[in-house]
Amino acid sequence: MSDQWDQQAPTVHLRESDDLNVEAPPQSTELVPVPQPEGDDDSLLRRGDVDAWGRSERLREVARMIYDPMYRHWFRVEWEGLEHIPRAGGALLVANHAAAIPSDAPTIMHGIETELQRPVYGLAENLLRAIPMLGTIWSRVGGVPAHPDNAYRLLHDDQQLVLVFPEGTKGTGKLYRDRYKLNRFGRGGFVEIAMRAGVPVVPIAVVGAEESMPMVWKSPRLAKLLNVPYVPVTANMLLFGPAGLFLYLPAKFKLRVLPPVEFDVPPDQERYSRSRVMDEAEHIRERIQLALFDMLRARRSVWAG
């Protein structure tokens, strides 16, 4: 995912195409101002509730219903600092990433949606979109391909909460012995998007995901052959066989939301200072890392918290 973040779109356009902030020119009377039979509101014509992002609130509700017991009784999720998440307006939620099949994304989305009654859109590897069924379901329950344009539009135009894991598959693809050691936060693309969209970054530290599906071994050769980020052998597979693909270990989840990071820069710039972006990204990474160490110091047991 991280590679997607830093692509700069080369600008190709015709002459004058950009200076169109001119307000509506006088309209011709013959043709153009047409009577609006439906108007802008076409909700009466709709036969489904899938929004422009492919998300269905109804299916999201179903997903929450199914996931709720897992959230409550299996992972026994505990939050602190939820008040740091803004009640209105866009914000980019940034968290550490773990578990071969990430268990942190659904937990964070579920938690915030039930506690704050605000939808969260989760950015993820766009390869998911290419998988039949799974790709569709993923998108219906709030997944969005991690393209910088998507993030910007969600944050800036739609003022939504967007969740991103800057470590990407480097986070989920790490072995158990490297647990809670944060990887590089991409190239800081997430900071640049937040700057451009003019929204704060809200760091979240997650404890528990690492132990819910620890990876004990991986095969780089097989991964290369299959053209996927990693092919894992997890403790879950060793314990439960094939069921281990889906069955998480009941690690206790603790999440800490850190105070939002605001960037004091004008939004919608073509480009932001590379060094500033890298500094901010590193700073956010460090804060999550320190919070993790702090939480781990206080943790008495992986399973009981």
């Binding site: 356009h13 015709l14 002459r15 004058e16 195409s17 950009d18 169109l20 020119p25 011709s28 043709l31 153009v32 047409v34 802008d40 076409d42 709709r46 036969r47 489904g48 899938v50 422009a52 492919g54």
Partner: peptide, 30 residues
């Protein structure tokens, strides 16, 4: 309308012209 609009107004450049909103294929069929 869009083609006539650009013929009668001076708007240079490239423009996407598409209806507002997106609908899934299953909903289109519904």
């Amino acid at each position: 309308n869009a083609l006539m609009y650009t013929t009668t107004h001076d708007v240079a450049g490239i423009y996407n012209v598409a209806g507002d909103g997106l609908v899934t294929w299953s909903e289109v069929c519904r």
